[in-house]
Write a protein that binds this DNA or RNA. Structure first.
Lengths: 141, 141
DNA sequence: TTAAAAATTGTAATCATTACAAAAATATAT
DNA sequence: ATATATTTTTGTAATGATTACAATTTTTAA
């Protein structure tokens, strides 16, 4: 809770009960949750919480670069409190999103320092993989 | 038209007037159009065409790896007849999607040959950039 | 030529997200 | 401290892309 508050502070985001709870949830659940997962998880302890607030808050966080919005799953936006450069793998079978470190010598700067982009202003870079994860691969057989 | 038909053939997709027209449109308009753009463009010459057919057909093409579905724009899915490896840049101002060649020494195999993915079955890899394109940058000033 | 299979169509449903305006909470100035 | 302005939250209603579905049409194969 304290960490979430400090983090919001560092990103110059005014805090509130709701904002702290949402950031705290994201920091403690590295599962790339959907809006609804966050809303349903927090509702019990915060019965007045509104879905709209979750939407608004996540949008605010993303605009302030405090979180990442992941659009790898066509059904729902997913959210990640870890903003340091890494790729994402989406298992089309179970829906899990895995964090994937970038390969050696391919940190995000090498991805966005693409000379083809010299006249573009790049604000974000996303590397997405889709397929079957190890768990589904073996259980499927 | 002939090319579109041959291409569908090579991907083992039964063709029909509608399928050829849709593939032909995609091959001739490298603008990464939305479902609606395709539907509205083809409607005049093909008045019985249904939006549902455009949806179904594009889904079929994507499943057969004949086209790419691009989810870089949260509002709409966008489609690309060019399936060879390249990145996409989405201008958040004008909505244009640019094809961006991958940087030297970073072809798609180097992206998906990430050792972190050795236990995953990778079916697709997408590299997305977002920001402001050169045109919007200068006109904005 | 006729029956079976595949493709297309239009409408209705779904569902994530956004718009909006009222209510509540918080910050500011007197 | 108190009234006022600003920000945040809330709930409902609207939007809009996509999908479900069942009927119709077209194509294929016997």
């Amino acid at each position: 809770m304290k960490q979430a508050q400090d983090y919001l502070n560092s990103k110059e985001i005014h805090f509130s009960q709701q904002r702290i709870a949402i950031m705290d949830y994201l920091m403690k659940h590295r599962t790339h949750p959907t809006v609804d997962e966050i809303y349903l998880a927090l509702s019990p302890q915060m019965p007045t919480l509104s879905r709209t607030t979750v939407y608004n808050t996540l949008k605010l966080f993303a605009e302030q670069d405090a979180i990442l919005t992941i659009n790898i799953d066509e059904k729902n936006a997913r959210f990640d409190a870890c903003t340091s450069p890494h790729a994402h793998f989406f298992c089309t079978q179970c829906g899990t999103i895995y964090d994937i470190p970038l390969p050696e010598g391919q940190d995000s700067s090498s991805l966005s320092n693409n000379p083809e982009l010299k006249d573009f202003i790049v604000k974000s870079t996303q590397l997405y993989y889709k397929g079957i994860c190890p768990l589904c691969k073996t259980s499927e057989k």
